[in-house]
Amino acid sequence: MPKNEKVIEVNNLTVRYPGMTHTAVEDVSFEVKRGSITTLIGPNGSGKTTIMQALLGLVEFTGEVMIFGRSLREVVEKVGFVPQRFGFDVAFPMSVNEFVGMVVLEGKSDQREKRVKKVLNEVGVGKMTKRMLRELSGGQMQRVLVARALVAKPELLILDEPEAGVDVAGEQSLYDLLEKLAKERDMTVLVASHELDVVYTYADSVVCVNRKLVCSGKPYEVLNQEMFEKIYGRELKFYGHEHHK
């Protein structure tokens, strides 16, 4: 597969939730290239999560969303997802091993266990297989969520603000891990974030939204004072960034 292949192609995406007078996302178009780490940025309520949900087929939308040139339903096994918030009962008695293995619905149990063990080792929580979910720290939980998304061997990983609930050191090590995994597995990564450091340090490209598309391209080419004002309002000052890819 060529490097400039479009893994995600979004055209004129509009989402309006039932009962809402305004659109959550309006006429957004962008693309994500194979092997890249792309960040989706914007303030709270800008539609980042909604865009991700549309990509994953979790909300109804108008427009076109293509993943690997097809509709999501046809390529669902190629996509992994790490949610922003736990949509589940963390207090329910469940081991890390069971949690990660739960999404592997086919195959024999010993093969499933091998896969789970391998992926947990990869994300650095290999010694926690028998620990209960509620016993994990925020950083450990995020790694376990990444492991669950990786266990099906996806070619595209979508993460919705994975740094939520993680301290600064944990955040950096999480993104270091994602960068390493993306390279090792030749995986495309789309990550929603509100951390601008993440954009400059790890991203190959950026998509900025504030309900509508504000900018897209290489971070150091498209992010400037004018763009920040459009995205976050006038109160945010742009100081540039020395380190970039």
Binding site: G57, R73, E77, G87, D89, M94, L105, R148
Partner: peptide
């Protein structure tokens, strides 16, 4: 049982997994 558990525990993940 596996499908029941996944849907009951985490419906979003179940949908993302193509169930």
């Amino acid at each position: 049982r596996k499908q029941f558990l996944l849907v009951a525990f985490d419906e979003v993940q179940a949908r993302v997994s193509g169930l």
